[in-house]
Amino acid sequence: MPRTKEQYEEMRNATRQKIQSAGMQLFVQKGFGSTNVQDIADVAGISIGLLYRHYKTKESLFNELVEYALDGLKKITQMFEGADSPKKLMALFVDEIYHDMQNGEELANLLILMSQLFFSGGAANPKQVEVLEVNDRLLRATTALIKKGQESGDFRSGDAHQMAVLFYSALQGLAEMKVILKNNFVMPSPLVLTSFLFKEGD
């Protein structure tokens, strides 16, 4: 019995997910410059010809993964620019980060992937400008959120911009530690992650 259009689409999506997963793993572990398409095909368990039917170059795969990460950053920015209380928004975000880092590799890999754009041969990549713009907007939104939280009395006093930089630097470092330490990695609790932001007893 011939396959339906839906079945072909499911197979196509499953293959793309295999390629994306393999690409993500290799870009994180080996770096963009040291990864080739044959490596990706081997890890995905498919032929190189099938890989090329989905992605013409490793750059196109890399850019799609970066785009996925950017979409996530844009959603966080929009959330932080919302009308909810700063403490509630930050608590929700930190809880989500905690669970994502506890239960899988994706968030850590995406954070490292963004760094790969700058440190592993991505200097000529046009995505670099967009990543810088999106990161800048997120940092500004987080700074504004912290200032708002300080005004409401929920957040500790201090330079809001520096606190935002420290927060994201900690997340980036945790992502790298998770990849390096593997099963020995222990994710700090939401309470620890927000201890320098939220006032004591909150």
Score class of each variant (00 low, 15 high):
1 M>R: 14
2 P>G: 00
3 R>P: 00
4 T>S: 15
6 E>V: 07
7 Q>V: 10
9 E>G: 10
10 E>D: 03
13 N>P: 00
14 A>H: 08
14 A>F: 04
14 A>T: 11
18 K>E: 01
20 Q>F: 03
21 S>Q: 14
22 A>C: 02
22 A>P: 02
23 G>F: 02
26 L>Y: 11
28 V>F: 06
30 K>V: 00
31 G>Q: 02
32 F>R: 09
32 F>K: 00
35 T>G: 06
35 T>V: 01
35 T>H: 07
35 T>L: 05
36 N>H: 13
37 V>L: 05
37 V>G: 01
38 Q>M: 15
38 Q>F: 02
40 I>H: 03
50 L>Y: 04
50 L>E: 08
51 L>S: 05
51 L>I: 04
53 R>S: 01
54 H>T: 04
54 H>L: 01
55 Y>S: 05
56 K>W: 01
56 K>D: 10
59 E>Q: 06
60 S>P: 00
60 S>K: 03
61 L>W: 10
64 E>F: 03
65 L>V: 05
65 L>P: 09
65 L>N: 09
67 E>V: 00
67 E>A: 11
69 A>N: 10
70 L>Q: 07
72 G>Q: 11
73 L>E: 10
74 K>G: 04
75 K>M: 12
76 I>G: 00
78 Q>D: 14
80 F>Q: 09
81 E>P: 00
81 E>H: 08
84 D>R: 13
85 S>I: 06
89 L>V: 12
89 L>F: 01
90 M>D: 08
93 F>Q: 15
94 V>A: 07
96 E>P: 00
97 I>L: 12
98 Y>N: 06
99 H>N: 02
99 H>C: 01
99 H>E: 08
100 D>W: 05
100 D>F: 10
103 N>E: 13
104 G>D: 08
106 E>P: 00
107 L>M: 14
108 A>Y: 07
112 I>Y: 02
112 I>V: 15
113 L>E: 03
114 M>S: 13
115 S>H: 13
115 S>P: 01
118 F>G: 03
119 F>L: 04
119 F>E: 09
124 A>F: 12
124 A>Q: 14
125 N>Y: 02
126 P>G: 07
126 P>E: 10
127 K>R: 13
128 Q>N: 04
130 E>G: 03
132 L>R: 08
132 L>N: 07
133 E>P: 00
133 E>C: 02
136 D>R: 15
138 L>K: 13
140 R>E: 15
141 A>C: 11
141 A>D: 09
141 A>R: 06
145 L>F: 04
146 I>D: 05
147 K>Q: 15
147 K>F: 12
152 S>V: 13
153 G>L: 12
153 G>F: 09
155 F>Q: 13
155 F>E: 08
157 S>C: 08
157 S>P: 02
158 G>E: 12
158 G>R: 12
158 G>D: 12
158 G>T: 07
160 A>H: 06
163 M>K: 15
163 M>V: 10
167 F>K: 06
173 G>C: 13
174 L>P: 03
178 K>S: 06
180 I>W: 04
180 I>R: 15
181 L>D: 06
185 F>G: 07
185 F>M: 07
186 V>I: 15
191 L>H: 10
193 L>E: 04
193 L>S: 03
194 T>H: 09
195 S>E: 15
196 F>R: 07
196 F>G: 08
198 F>T: 10
199 K>L: 09
202 D>S: 11
202 D>E: 14
